[in-house]
Write a protein that binds this DNA or RNA. Structure first.
Length: 578
RNA sequence: GUCCUCGUAGCUCAGCCGGAUAGAGCACCAGAUUCCUAAUCUGGGGGCCGUGGGUUCGAAUCCCGCCGAGGACACCA
């Protein structure tokens, strides 16, 4: 039994059409929709069934619409049905049927809107996956929120969801991090070296100078004493310490990242280490698989166009035939030193996912990785023989604004805003909600002042306030249970605004499904905002005398008898003053 | 040069994988509110949906060209 009355009425419409046109194949009905009409004066629902079926049935849409309307009007749920426009059928539902949704919704509780859309499908949602080279900053925030919200959304829509974090702990960045942590370790031992002397001694210089590594140095000293250094806190050869320091540092960084994520309400199920995958031979396994399918060869790529590379030179590389799967060029898998490229390691990562039995993979990436999507989809298609899908949701950069000024992200200038700073300043809920008030691939400004402002300009506050007011209403009613409410006489829900609120709530299940299908969690935030408007409109005096549309506003053209109450009043007072 | 993401009201953005007269918030103007929190509500003005074609009963939505913004373009992650 579906909770979605739109789906239920759609089934009724299809059934009616099938009876009218018994000879039509089942596919003819696939595109039939039942949805809320844009203009609420048209009714509660509208279906395009007659339009869709007209062509295969070889009958004019208006004729079919009239016949369909007649049948739908006879349904117990339906107050009236009328053909309209080029072949739509508009339905108006009986108020009793709408009211009956209330106990159903109350009975479902938080499970209201749960869907079986993704039933039987396992999806892996990978998000954040920040390099473990430092604390989370605001740049990571949007991806974390979008990914987490999307994973929750898919779970509500019936998918079996795994939340995953891919730890990029195999590249040069992590080596640089280890050197930086080692410096803090030497400092903890009381080395006489200066920072610059140390920086000059390592290739690429000292890259991570933030003091967040100081505790790591202390921890290394606590665990290993002086054993990782020469006497006097002088650096030892990397072979003596590099693996140890790197592992400990990554471990501690990941611990900090997990804490930051927890503060944001994000808890991922699986943390996959790039290094561990490589060490386990996943890269070779993936290569062998691709090679067996004839998708690997050695060749020389053209130099990239439109961009001059000083050090470019023709070089033979091991290449993956990504072009066979829609990518622009074939992609290299091995660096000149023989180790895997980031892409190759990521292929190993995806093989690992496929082997764990996921049928769908979802990633949330920063928009600057947009150019990477096609090759990864190509790889997944190649590895899974086209059986596993990869969807990538791109999250655009967030520009942080404070006091009307953009906050520049600079570690050196000390204006580096950590995720924790942000949460401490404006609160977890405000951060999460605000990040979802835009489509994820749209650029967004995050105004630190506005999200804590208790005003109409702040959608976070708007929605929170509506919730507070709900509680207030319940408190005023003596804190009834859901069962108490369900047993209450429904006939008193007669105001147009109250019925509008019920209509709004009946759209929740389809909103969940549509948002999950589109992988767009922001739609849930928008639903909250429209729901809020509809709710707040209830109880206003205007609500009792004029109809209300789905957004809580009133219809442009007032319908129904009589003047709006304030016009009545103005007229009478004008008469009185005369 | 190629690819990706975009272009909708003055501003910030929705628009439910093709539907009827394109919406909201903010801003502006004009009003309401003895009543669950004035932390609210209502009305109004305001848009060639970047642009030119195409697909069809029907396009903001799908396809192609162009203009404009941002991003990515061998051994960085």
């Amino acid at each position: 039994m579906t909770q979605d009355i739109f789906a239920a009425l759609r089934a009724r419409a299809v059934e009616a059409m099938r009876n009218l046109l018994p000879d039509l194949p089942e596919e003819a009905f696939a595109r039939v929709q039942m949805e809320p009409p844009r203009d609420l004066t048209h009714g509660d629902m509208a279906t395009n069934a007659a339009l869709v079926v007209a062509k295969p049935a070889r009958q004019p849409p208006p004729k079919l619409a009239a016949a369909l309307a007649e049948r739908l009007a006879a349904l117990p749920e339906v107050e009236s049905a009328a053909p309209a426009g080029p072949g739509f059928v508009n339905l108006r539902l009986r108020e009793g049927f709408l009211r009956a949704q209330v106990p159903a919704i109350l009975a479902a509780g938080e499970g209201y809107g749960d869907s079986t859309l993704g039933a039987g499908r396992r999806v892996d949602v990978e998000y954040v996956s920040a390099n473990p080279t430092g604390p989370m900053h605001v740049g990571h925030c949007r991806g974390a929120v979008v990914g987490d919200a999307l994973a929750n959304l898919l779970g509500k829509a019936g998918w079996d969801v795994t939340k995953e974090y891919y730890i990029n702990d195999a590249g040069a960045q992590v080596l640089a991090l280890a050197h930086a942590a080692y410096w803090r370790y030497l400092q903890a031992l009381g080395t006489k070296l200066t920072e610059e002397e140390y920086a000059q001694s390592i290739q690429g210089g000292l890259q991570y100078r933030g003091d967040y590594l100081v505790p790591v140095g202390e921890a290394l000293r606590a665990r290993y004493g002086e054993s990782l250094a020469e006497p006097g806190g002088m650096p030892a050869g990397p072979s003596h310490w590099l693996d140890t320091v790197r592992d400990v540092t990554v471990e501690l960084m990941m611990q900090a990242i997990r804490e930051d994520l927890a503060a944001l309400g994000v808890r991922q199920d699986v943390f996959v280490s790039e290094r561990a995958l490589v060490a386990a031979g996943k890269l070779e396994e993936a290569e062998a698989l691709l090679a067996a399918r004839g998708l690997i060869y050695h060749g020389v790529l053209e130099p990239p166009k439109g961009k001059t590379l000083d050090d470019w030179e023709p070089r033979e590389q091991e290449l993956f035939r990504a072009t066979q799967f829609g990518d622009e060029v074939d992609r290299p898998l091995r660096k000149s030193d023989g180790s895997g490229t980031y892409f190759a390691n990521d292929i190993a990562n995806h093989l690992h996912k496929i082997e764990r039995g996921f049928s769908e993979l979802v990633h949330v990436w920063g928009a600057d990785h947009g150019g990477y999507v096609k090759r990864m989809q190509a790889a997944v298609a190649a590895l899974s023989d086209g059986k596993v899908s990869l969807d990538v949701v791109l999250a655009q950069i967030v520009h942080v604004v404070k006091d009307g000024q953009p906050v520049r992200m600079s570690k050196r200038a000390g204006t580096y805003v950590t995720l924790r700073d942000l949460i401490d300043e404006v609160g977890r809920d405000a951060v999460r909600f605000t990040m979802l008030t835009r489509k994820s691939d749209a650029q967004m400004e995050f105004d630190l002042d506005k999200v804590v402002e208790q005003s109409r300009e702040n959608p976070v506050f708007y929605v929170q306030y509506a919730h507070a007011r709900c509680r207030s209403v319940l408190r005023g009613a003596g804190d009834p249970t859901a069962a108490d409410l369900a047993a209450a006489p429904l006939e008193s829900l007669a105001d147009p605004a109250e019925l509008a609120l019920i209509r709004r709530l009946t759209a929740w299940p389809r909103t969940v499904e549509a948002a999950a299908t589109a992988r767009e969690p922001h739609r849930i935030a928008f639903f909250s905002m429209t729901w809020r408007a509809t709710f707040m409109y209830c109880g206003t005096r205007a609500a009792r005398t004029r109809p209300c549309d789905s957004f809580g506003g009133m219809n442009r053209k007032p319908q129904g008898p009589g003047w709006p109450w304030w016009l009545r009043r103005r007229r009478s007072s004008a008469r009185a003053s005369r």
